[in-house]
Simulated assay, not measured.
Amino acid sequence: MNNRKTELETRVLSSKGRALFDHELIELILYRNVENNEVSEKLMKLFKSVGKVINADFHELKSVTGMNDSAIATIFSVRETLQRMLKEDLNELPVIESQKKLIEYLKVTIAQSTVESFLVIYLNKRSRIIDEYLQEGTINKSPLYPREIMKRGLLVGATAMIIAHNHPGGNVKPSQHDISVTKTLSLACSSMDIELIDHLIVTEKNYFSFLENKIL
C-alpha cells in the first residue's frame, strides 16, 4: 500500500493533480482508512463519478464492502471543504451577479445527490446570502412546504430568495409539478414582499433557470 501511495503522490506532484484517474483520486483520499485500492474501484462502479461518491450519504457509502466510519468521515470532510470553498467565493459578490458561482455551488451541494433535494437561499437587500434551508425527498420528488419557507424567510429578514432543486435522473427540463409549485411559491412571496428571483434545476452537468426561460 505504501508503494502504491508513493506512486500516486509522485504522479500528483508531477502533474499538479491532473494525472490521476477518478478511482485513483478516491483511492489516494482514502488510503489511510481502507485496506486496499479495490474499495475505490467499487465506489466508482457503484456511483459512476467522483462527484457522486463525494455526495453519497452515510448508508450508501457503508453498503460498500471495505468502507468504514473513518473512510466515510474522510469523504464527508472533503465534501464539506468543497462546499465551504465555493460558499466563500459566492459570498464575495451579490448572488444575482454571480450565477456561475451559484451554479458551481449547487452542483456540489445538491446536484449530485441520489434523491431530490430542495434548497432555498435567502438574500438580504444587498443580494447577499443570509440563510439556507434544505429539504430532502425521494429519488423523483422533493417536498416543498411554502408555509415553512415563508416563515423562515420572515424570521431571517430576507428580502429575496432563490430556490433550487436537483433532478437525479439527469434531465433538467421542469415538470408540470415544478412549474405549479414555483407559481404557488411566487404568489406567497409576493404577498410577503419577498422577491422570488429564480428557480434553478440542476444536474451534474447542466442547469435550467426559470428566469432565463421566462417561466418566472
Results as ranks from 00 to 15, higher is better:
M1I: 04
N2H: 12
K5R: 15
K5P: 02
E24H: 13
I26D: 02
I29H: 03
N33M: 02
E35D: 07
E38P: 00
E41V: 06
K42V: 03
L43T: 03
M44R: 05
K45A: 11
K45M: 08
F47V: 08
G51D: 15
I54C: 09
A56P: 07
A56Q: 09
L61W: 02
K62Q: 15
G66F: 01
G66S: 12
A73D: 13
Q83K: 14
R84C: 01
L86T: 01
D89K: 15
L90T: 08
N91H: 11
E92V: 09
L93Q: 15
L93I: 11
Q99R: 15
K100V: 07
Y105M: 10
L106H: 12
V108F: 03
T109R: 08
S113F: 00
L119G: 04
Y122M: 06
N124Y: 11
D131W: 05
E132H: 05
I139C: 03
I139L: 11
I139R: 15
P146N: 10
P146Q: 05
R152Q: 13
V156L: 06
V156W: 05
I162Y: 07
I163G: 00
H165Y: 11
P168M: 11
P168A: 08
G170C: 10
N171K: 12
Q176H: 11
I179N: 06
S180C: 04
K183S: 12
A188L: 09
C189Y: 07
C189M: 11
S190Y: 07
M192L: 08
I194P: 03
E195N: 13
L211I: 00
L211S: 05
E212H: 11
